[in-house]
């Protein structure tokens, strides 16, 4: 569930960025668009509780982020947010198996081995457990990052430019996998992209278009 109203953030340097309102039920899909510099990354950081808003309502998953302290937000983020960064950010020093343990390690919770096994099987990562990230193909690495994001059954899955550097077939495959996985988990999916191809695949997604600094445009 996402509920965003009158949301704005003020940068230390001065300018205030306002974001269009949005309401999405749990399990919905959102396509976050807009030109570079329009604030897509900032908005993702706000949704993940990494930045604090200046004004407005910011409800993500089960949390009203304006009401939580930073420690509570850290714990909540681990529980309810899954994030697939554009550059994946798998830890180069760790094997695939150890990368997949990080979500629990970060939260200080015992690793759910069965859950790891389940994701490894569902995302086609069987046999890759001992490999280091540099020994994976781009598609494999992306699936590892998706498995890591899904590890703790998040309520919201955030993806930053998931189709960058992918050819059409690979892009379609990656998006479909992500959408299916989110649907299977009942997670709300937010894809930030300026890639037109994404719209074609996620044709049921709600568009959430940012116009640029200082301006705001309603949900389409």
């Amino acid at each position: 569930m996402l509920d965003i109203r009158d949301l704005s953030i003020t940068y230390a340097a001065g300018p205030t960025l306002r974001f269009p309102d949005l309401h999405v039920a749990q399990g919905g899909q959102v396509l976050l668009g807009g030109p570079s510099g329009s604030g897509k990354s900032t908005l993702l950081a706000l949704l993940a509780g990494l930045l604090r808003p200046a004004t407005g309502v910011l409800r993500v998953g089960s949390a009203d982020l304006a009401r939580l302290g930073s420690r509570q937000i850290d714990a909540w983020r681990g529980r309810e947010i899954g994030f697939v960064p554009q550059r994946l950010h798998l830890s180069a020093g760790l094997s695939v198996a150890h990368n997949l343990e990080l979500p629990w390690l970060a939260a200080g919770e015992p690793v759910e081995r069965r859950r790891v096994g389940e994701l490894v099987e569902r995302l086609g990562l069987v046999g890759l457990a001992a490999r280091r990230p540099h020994e994976l193909s781009l598609g494999q690495a992306q699936r590892v990052a998706l498995a890591r994001a899904l590890a703790r059954r998040p309520r919201v899955l955030l993806a930053d430019e998931p189709t960058a550097h992918l050819d059409d077939d690979a892009a379609r495959g990656a998006l479909a996998l992500m959408a299916d996985a989110a649907a299977a988990e009942g997670a709300t999916l937010v894809v930030a992209t300026h890639d037109r191809r994404v719209e074609a695949v996620l044709d049921e997604a709600i568009g959430w278009r940012l116009a640029g600094a200082g301006a705001a445009e309603g949900a389409r």
């Binding site: 990494l50 420690r71 983020r77 529980r79 830890s91 990080l102 979500p103 390690l105 970060a106 890591r148």
Partner: peptide, 18 residues
């Protein structure tokens, strides 16, 4: 070198203290 890893750890719910 590991700043992105550490940032990812924060993203995954680790507190700064952790």
């Amino acid at each position: 070198e590991r700043e992105p890893d550490l940032a990812m750890l924060r993203m995954l719910g680790a507190s700064p203290a952790r």
